[in-house]
Structure formats: C-alpha cells, structure tokens
Design a protein around this nucleic acid. Structure first.
Length: 742
DNA sequence: AGCACGCCGACT
DNA sequence: GTCGGCGTGCTC
C-alpha cells in the first residue's frame, strides 16, 4: 500500500510558519486522521513536539519524501472549535473552489502578527544599581543588544515583548541567555480590549403578540426535543422580528450554548447593538470592520475562552470559534452583503447552514423580503416558514403607496426630478413640520441607456438585461456579448431624448434646495459619511430634527426608525431595475419595500411616492401593493424561463490576465473544453464574454457562465476544469481562474 | 516559536 | 587563534 501524507499547519501564530507542512501518517493512525484532526508533530531542529491541524490528505508529497517526518500522535482533548472550523474551511474550498490557504484565511482570519496588546512583557530582575553596572559591562564588551535592552530597562523596568522585538530589534537568541542568567524574566498578562464601552441599560422585555409567540413556541418545542432545524421568518418591516430573536437567543443561552448573530454591516448601528447589550449585558460582543486586527483577535479569543455567549457582526462573525454553538441567526437574510466578494466567494447563508449542521445548531433566517433562494427552500419544506404580518406597535399603520409615471410627467411638460404629486406632498409636509426622506436607489455605476420620453431602457434581445454603454459608442450585453452601436434615437419610439442614466445625490440636493429654499436638507452618501461615525452623525442629526429632508442612497432606508417621517419619495425606481444583473428585479423590490417601510412607523399616516418610467413592471407594482407572494411568483417565473438561480445553478468562471491575447486564447480553450464535457450533462454554456468592467488595473477579465439545475454537476465540471488548467500550464501560466457559484 | 549556523568583535 | 554574542534563515 502506498504512503499517505497529511498536510498540516503548525499551531504557532507567526507569519513565518503560516503555511502547510507535510508529514507521514503512520499505519496505525490512518483510520483516525482526517481533515480537521489535531495532531502532535515533531517540528524543527530539536524535534520539539507541537500541535498542528490536518488540513488535507494526499498520496504524493510536495516535498522530498526522505526528509518527511512522521506524525507523533493525536491530540485527544475533545474536538476543539478550531478543528471544526478547519473542517469547515475544507468544505469551503471544495464547495466554492479556492486553495486551502484562501479558505483557511477566511475561517481563521486572525493568524496575524498583531498579537494581543502587551501579551508578554519583559521585567527587569535587577535593581537600578545592578542594572547600570550591567549596562556598563555590556558597553565595555560592546554587547549591542544588551546595551539597548538594559538602557531601556533603566528607563522603565517593564517593557512589552512586542516592542522589544520589533522596535528595539532584539532577537530571541539575544534575550534568552539573559533570562537564564536571571537578569530579566518574561511574564504574560492578557488584556482584552472590549469594543463595547457603554453603560448598560435594562432592555425591558416586551409582551409578544400572537404571531411572535407562535414562532417562539415552535422553536422552543423543537429545541427542547433536540430537533435542530432551519427557520425562515418572513416578517414585514416593523413586525418585531428583533423581539423574536431575543427570545430565541435567551432560550439557547439558558441551555449553556452560544449564539452567532449576523447583521449586515450597514445595519449594525448603535441602536441595534444597544438592544442586544441591554438585554444580555457583557455576555455580548460585536465585531465590525472598524475594529483593528488586534481587537478582532481579542473578541475571537474571548469567544474561544467562553467569556461571551453572543457574537454580533457581519459575514465574518460566522467564524467565531465558539465550542458549543447552539444557534446562528441571520437578520436581513436577503442582503447582498452576505455574499463574499473575495475568493472563496461563499454565501453566509449557505456556510451558516453547513456550520449549523456540523455543530448541531439551529439556523434562523429573518427578512421582510426573503431572497428567492430562501423562500423557495421554505416552500419546498426544507425550512420551516413563519410569517409576521402585523406591525408590532398596535397604532402604527402601513403607509399609502402610490406609483407615479414619469413618462406622463414629461409629456405634461414637467421636466423636474419631482413629480407634481411628490412636490405637492413635500410642500404640505414642510408646512406641517413633518419629515421627508428622498431616496435614490443608485448603487455603484448605473450606466445603462434609457429613453426619457417612453422610459424604455435598451435591453439585450437574448438575455433580458440592460445593455451597458462602453466608451460612449457601443452597447454591450454582459451576459452573452451581444453588441450594437449606440443608437441616436430611441429604438421603440424614435425620440431623440435618449441618454446615459445616472443621477447623483449631490445633484438632487441642489435641485431640492432650489425648489424648497426654506427647507433644511441633510445629505447622506459616500462623501458625507467618510469619517468615523459619519453615518451615525447624520442619522442622529435627522432624528433630532436638525433637518427637514434627508437625501440619500440605500443607507438611509436601513435600520433606523424615524417616527416623524411621514413621506418617502423614491426618485427613480428604475435605477436599480435596470442594472445589468439578473437580480435587478429582486433588488428593486427589496429596496422599494424597505423604503416604504420607513414611512408612518408611528400613529401618523405615511405616504410613499415611487417615481418610475416603468410603472407596469411587476417589481414596482408588487412593491407598491406590498405583496411579496405576487412578486415571488412572477420573479420565479422569470428565473425559471431564463434558467437563473434559484431555478437553476449558475457557475461563473472568471479568467483574468495582464496579457489580453493569452487571456482570449485561454478562455476560448477552457470554453471549448467546458462545452465538450458539459454537453452530455446538459449544461448550458454562455461565453466567454468580457466582464462588465473588462479591464481593471491593467488586468483583463473574461467570464464563462455555466447553467445546470443540478448543482453537483456544476461542481463536477468545475473540478474537471481545474484539472484541465493543471494539465495545461502553458495556457494558464499567466491566467488566474476563479469560480463563483450562485 | 525556537534551534543551528556563521559572522565578527574581544580577549587569553 | 578561540570564545561567545547576536542576526539570519529554516523548520515537512
């Protein structure tokens, strides 16, 4: 029988050894060693036994077999949080196509040199006199390292080890003899930095309404019976989902298990955090992108040591090293931010499902506008579905939503960005001293072309996505590569008013100022929120009535409650409808629903005006009538027709290279290979086409799309393409290949 | 992280 | 010459 080798990472948090080492697996351990196993291995010259994690098993070693040592044994002190996370990393690698290193960095994001603050310190054991003698001695003998150290110790008898090594350039071999001599000693103290420094205020437990109670009861029943399941809570805005979450969390931590709460970064506001902190006190911790690497490390360390029970944070909080995880909760489950932008391009919902299954935890998803993926699974019975259809506050009413046809406005001679109805309502609200939110659902670049008189956006005849304007001269489809020259007049109504669409918040602010000079206007976009706490500052200013009108993008419709907002205007709903992406309809529905939920959260009746060039589009119609079911049916019909997810699996393969001609050749070759192996499996293949932004930083990118209902077939094909790239190094030498499943 | 190798200044 | 501090590089 051939030898087997284990690829192992050593449990030393130091950059220099942050890679894998191969070890031979002894015969008697062959059954027991799998990915994720913690093992003891001899390491380095002295063969000191160290702990390591098995991250892979191979038949052929990537190192001189004669020099490979044997695994010493298995660490048996239970299954640690890390070893399970490493198993999860393995799954990530297999599922999403990345290297083990990339997967490990995702799962163990704290393997950095930024160790906790003052973890180790050097303390002088000599008194001042002895110290200055030692200094003189060292100077005489020109022991440079000692001079530096003694000199510093004379100033301060305690020096952080970190500083000594990095700033004072002392190596371990310079320090060690001094410890043996008894001049100094090393001590360690652990100081955690706690990012929440707030005075706790009791969060009072509200009485649940019947809808909320049903969810809590069913969950508790399942939990007590030991049943772990996935639950989808479809609750309209303001229906009190957070209250339900609190009860579920309570149940799980009473059982001495731990909870991860995922919240999109943008909604991770002071308000939200305070609610959790008020209820669960210092057993809660948060992570967010503002935390330094050191602070994040501390938070994960606290979780590992069992100092906290609840971790709240964005996507990355999913990898909190809890050892007794009982519940993962994903709020605003439909949010795009849960999909990773970097390799491995995992989706938090899917990874949460895997982790929950591995650790025997429950998974709860919540949203006012569930993703098609989640809702489809719920309808199929894979998730338990619950609905909250009433607002939690009794006297609050749903807002009145109306759709305004901008084509008609133009026909009637109104060229401003405000429809007559919106103008009228704005004047009225300003008079009554009530507040207004103007929402422009722009995201990134929106360079599609549309007609100002008929509202028609120019679309690809084969793909039903808008064409994108390239170099102001040609329109290109990013899904199939179809291209036409930029027309001079509208193809459907021949109007010459056809142009690139794109309006900024700044421009809107100017126009609003001009039309309502008496109003105080606050603007919230990337420019005005740059600084730390920029978000909070503007939102609280608005809450304090320091402004009458708040203008902004998606940011303003998430999270915050403004009881005095009674009018929400969506200036151009088409902006998100016409992005070149099959999800544009879904995103539009979500944004409009959220925007509508902002108005009339209190007793005062609210109005929502949706301005659009496509008043008949189902995303807009169903958002206006607040009818999720109707939206779901129509959007699913579209996805089935076009074979887009979740009706079908979609594998996106990206090729990127600095060399355009090599890229073209390689992408074509891979495309031909994929066609050949995909044909018998009934895989539909599109491309290779240029990526929506073809060149970034002088790197060209091409895309290949593969569609097939069966996800596993796509994974199989991915593996074969991976093999193809390994067998053709001449093609892939200069080309990077990345996979994305959706 | 921790060990060995080897450079270079100091001292018998 | 030899001794020993201390910077550097490697560990499967």
């Amino acid at each position: 029988m051939s030898e087997t080798y284990a690829r192992i990472i050593i449990d030393i948090s130091h950059e220099k050894v942050d890679r894998t080492f191969d070890y031979r697996i002894p015969q008697h351990l062959r059954q027991e060693i799998t990915v994720g196993t913690r093992v003891l291995i001899p390491f380095g010259k002295g063969n000191t036994m160290r702990k390591g994690y098995v991250v892979g098993i191979t038949a052929k070693a990537s190192y001189d077999p004669d020099k490979i040592k044997e695994i010493g044994g298995i660490v048996t002190d239970g299954v640690s949080a890390e070893s399970r996370l490493i198993t999860l990393a393995w799954w990530l690698k297999e599922q999403y196509g990345s290297t083990m290193n990339q997967a490990l960095k995702t799962v163990l994001p704290i393997k950095q040199k930024v160790k906790p603050k003052e973890k180790k310190i050097i303390r002088s054991l000599l008194n001042r006199e002895q110290l200055s003698n030692a200094l003189k001695e060292a100077e005489k003998k020109s022991y440079k390292a000692r001079v530096r150290l003694f000199f510093a110790l004379l100033d301060n008898p305690v020096i952080p080890y970190e500083i000594a090594v990095n700033q004072m350039n002392l190596s371990a071999s310079a320090i060690k003899p001094l410890i043996e001599k008894g001049d100094i000693c090393l001590e360690s103290e652990e100081i955690y930095r706690n990012p929440i420094q707030i005075e706790s205020q009791e969060e009072k437990r509200l009485r649940l309404n019947p809808g909320q109670q049903i969810i809590v009861d069913s969950f508790n029943r399942d939990y007590s019976e030991g049943k772990r399941d996935t639950y989808l809570i479809h609750g309209i805005t303001g229906s009190g989902k957070t209250e339900v979450y609190m009860e579920l969390i309570q149940r799980v931590i009473e059982d001495d298990r731990q909870v991860i709460v995922l919240i999109p970064e943008i909604a991770l506001t002071y308000q939200t955090v305070m609610r959790f902190y008020g209820r669960f006190g210092n057993r809660v911790s948060i992570i967010n992108s503002r935390l330094s690497a050191g602070e994040r490390f501390d938070q994960f360390e606290r979780a590992k040591n069992g100092d906290i029970d609840i971790m709240i944070g964005p996507r990355s909080a999913l990898f909190t090293p809890f050892s007794r995880l009982g519940l993962i909760l994903i709020d605003e489950e439909h949010e795009g931010a849960y999909k990773s932008e970097t390799v491995p391009r995992y989706h938090a919902r899917e990874v949460a499902g895997k982790r929950a299954q591995m650790e025997g935890a429950s998974l709860v998803l919540g949203s006012a506008t569930p993703s098609l993926e989640a809702y489809t699974k719920a309808l199929r019975g894979e998730y338990q579905l619950f609905r909250l259809t009433e607002r939690a506050k009794k006297d609050s009413s749903l807002a009145e939503v109306s759709v305004v046809d901008l084509r008609q406005e133009l026909k009637d001679g109104n060229k401003s960005i405000f429809s007559r109805k919106l103008q009228m309502l704005m004047e009225e609200r300003l008079r009554k001293k009530e507040q207004i939110m103007l929402f422009i659902n722009r995201r990134g670049y929106a360079n599609f072309v549309s007609c100002r008189s008929c509202g028609e956006a120019i679309r690809c005849p084969h793909c039903d996505v808008t064409l994108t304007l390239h170099n102001n001269s040609r329109l290109v489809c990013h899904y199939c590569g179809h291209t036409i020259p930029m027309p001079s007049k509208c193809p459907s109504c021949s109007s010459p008013y056809i142009a690139n669409f794109g309006v900024g918040t700044q421009k809107i602010e100017q126009m609003t100022k001009k039309m309502f000079p008496q109003a105080r206007i606050l603007r919230m976009d990337l420019d005005t929120t740059k600084g730390k706490g920029g978000h909070e500052a503007i939102l609280s200013a608005f809450a304090e009535h320091e402004g009458d009108i708040l203008i902004g993008t998606q940011m303003i419709v998430k999270g915050h409650d403004f009881p005095d907002v009674t009018l929400v205007g969506v200036l151009a709903a088409d902006l998100s409808l016409n992005t070149p992406d099959y999800r544009s309809g879904e995103r539009t529905f979500q944004l409009l629903t959220q925007a509508a939920g902002r108005a009339g959260r209190d007793a005062k009746a609210g109005d929502v005006i949706i301005q659009t060039y496509s008043p008949d589009h189902y995303s807009i119609v169903t958002a206006a009538s607040q009818d999720y079911e109707a939206f779901y049916r129509q959007e699913m019909a579209f996805r089935r027709l076009m074979k887009y997810p979740p009706a079908s699996g979609l594998l996106t393969i990206q090729f990127s290279s600095r060399n355009e001609s090599v890229l073209t050749e390689t992408a074509a070759a891979a495309g031909a290979f994929a066609t050949a192996i995909g044909e018998p499996e009934q895989v539909q293949l599109i491309g290779p086409v240029e990526a929506s932004v073809y060149k970034i930083n002088d790197i060209y990118r091409k895309i290949l799309y593969l569609k097939q209902e069966n996800y596993d077939i796509l994974i199989k094909i991915r593996d074969q393409i991976d093999g193809f790239s390994e067998n053709h190094p001449e093609l892939f030498e200069q080309v990077l290949i990345q996979y994305d499943f959706s």
